[in-house]
Design a protein around this nucleic acid. Structure first.
Length: 293
DNA sequence: AAACGGTTCAACCGCACTTTG
DNA sequence: ACAAAGTGCGGTTGAACCGTT
C-alpha cells in the first residue's frame, strides 16, 4: 500500500494551531455540515495543514461535544477499571467516557493514573500487586497480559450477568422493582453489548467448542464442581436461569484454558485468578477513590 | 530574577485496518 | 483479487508551563 506524503514533504505547516486556523476549520465543518474527506478538507478550507492534522485537531480539541477540564474522580475510576479490562485501547476506553478523547485519556493515564497505581504498589499493566506480577519472568508476564485482560473482561461480565440475574424478576421473589441505582456491573454489560465488546464476543465464540465443553463438564463433575449437564446450552445469550451455571463453566474454562492447545500456558490464568480478578471485582461500587489515595 | 528540572498535554509519526474503484 | 486512498489508533515528542533552588 502506498504511503501518502507526509506534511513536511508537501511544505505544509506543522506544530501548534493558531486560533485563526481553528476558526477556519470549525467554520468550514459547520458550513459544510461535516468534514467530508479529510484529505481534501485543508485545500477546500484554505488551510496549510495536512488532512491528518485537521482531523486530529477537530477530534481532539475543536469538536463541540468535547468535555474540557479536569477529570472527575468517577471518570478516573472508570478509566482505571476499563484499563484493567481493555489494556491500552484508548479509543475503546474513550468511547465509554462521553466528551473525552482517546488522547486525553492516554495522557491522563501516562501522567497521573499510572504513577498513582505504581505508588500504591500496583502494576499499571497487569493491575496486579507489583510483587505478584513480577513472579514470572518478564517475557512470560508480558505475553499473558492480553490473556489476563480477556480473562478479567470475561469474569467481570459474568459477574455482572450474575448480579443482574439476581436482581431480575425471575429471581426476585418479592416482586420489588429492579434496583434503580446503577451498579458497576451495568458498565460491563453496557460495554459488552457495545462495539467494544464485539471484538471479545467474536474471540469468545470461536473459543466455544462444544466438544471441549462437554468433555470438561464431566471433568468438572469429577473434581466436585457443582455443575450439571444443562450447562451446554446457548452461550451467547445466557438465560437468567443458567447464569450461575454458565458462570461456573466459563470460569472453569477460562482459568484452565479449555480449548487452548498450549497446555504450557495454563498457569497464566490460574495466576491471575486470585489477584487480578479479585482486584477487578473488588472495585468500590460508589465513587470512592480511597483505594488509590 | 534567573537557572534548572520535572510535568503536562497538544500534536506528530508511522503502522494497521477499512473502504473504494 | 488487487492496489490505492482514506481513516483510526497507540506510541512518542517537544514546547509550554510550573515549582524549586
Amino acid at each position: 500500500m502506498g504511503r501518502t506524503p507526509c506534511c513536511d514533504k508537501m511544505g505544509l505547516k506543522k506544530g501548534p494551531w493558531t486560533s485563526e486556523e481553528d476558526e477556519v476549520l470549525v467554520s468550514y465543518i459547520k458550513k459544510n455540515g461535516g468534514h467530508g474527506s479529510w484529505r481534501s478538507l485543508p485545500k477546500l478550507a484554505g488551510l496549510l495543514r495536512c488532512g491528518k492534522s485537521c482531523r486530529l485537531r477537530w477530534t481532539n480539541y475543536l469538536r463541540p461535544d468535547i468535555k474540557r477540564g479536569p477529570f472527575k474522580p468517577d471518570e478516573e475510576k472508570l478509566v482505571i477499571q476499563l484499563h484493567a479490562i481493555l489494556g491500552n485501547r484508548w479509543a475503546a476506553i474513550a468511547s465509554q467516557l462521553p466528551g473525552r478523547t482517546d488522547n486525553e485519556i492516554k495522557n491522563l493515564w501516562n501522567t497521573h493514573l499510572k504513577k498513582r497505581l505504581i505508588s500504591k504498589g500496583i502494576d499499571p499493566q497487569t493491575h496486579e500487586p507489583i510483587s505478584s506480577s513480577h513472579y514470572y519472568p518478564i517475557s512470560k508476564s508480558n505475553s499473558s497480559i492480553a490473556t489476563r485482560h480477556m480473562a478479567q473482561w470475561e469474569s467481570a461480565r459474568l459477574e455482572a450477568e450474575a448480579r443482574l440475574s439476581k436482581d431480575s424478576p425471575l429471581f426476585n421473589n418479592n416482586n420489588t422493582p429492579l434496583a434503580s441505582n446503577k451498579s458497576d456491573s451495568d458498565y460491563f454489560l453496557k460495554i459488552w453489548n457495545s462495539d467494544v465488546g464485539e471484538s471479545f464476543r467474536v474471540v469468545r465464540k470461536s473459543d466455544e467448542d462444544d466438544d471441549d465443553k462437554t468433555r470438561c463438564i464431566s471433568s468438572m463433575s469429577q473434581e466436585g464442581s457443582s455443575c450439571n449437564n444443562n450447562k451446554c446450552g446457548s452461550v451467547s445469550a445466557t438465560p437468567a436461569s443458567n447464569v450461575k451455571e454458565d458462570f461456573e463453566w466459563r470460569n472453569y474454562k477460562l482459568f484452565n484454558h479449555v480449548g487452548c492447545d498450549d497446555s504450557s500456558s495454563s498457569n497464566d490464568l490460574e495466576d491471575s485468578s486470585d489477584t487480578a480478578l479479585q482486584l477487578l471485582l473488588d472495585f468500590p461500587s460508589n465513587n470512592d477513590m480511597s483505594f488509590l489515595e
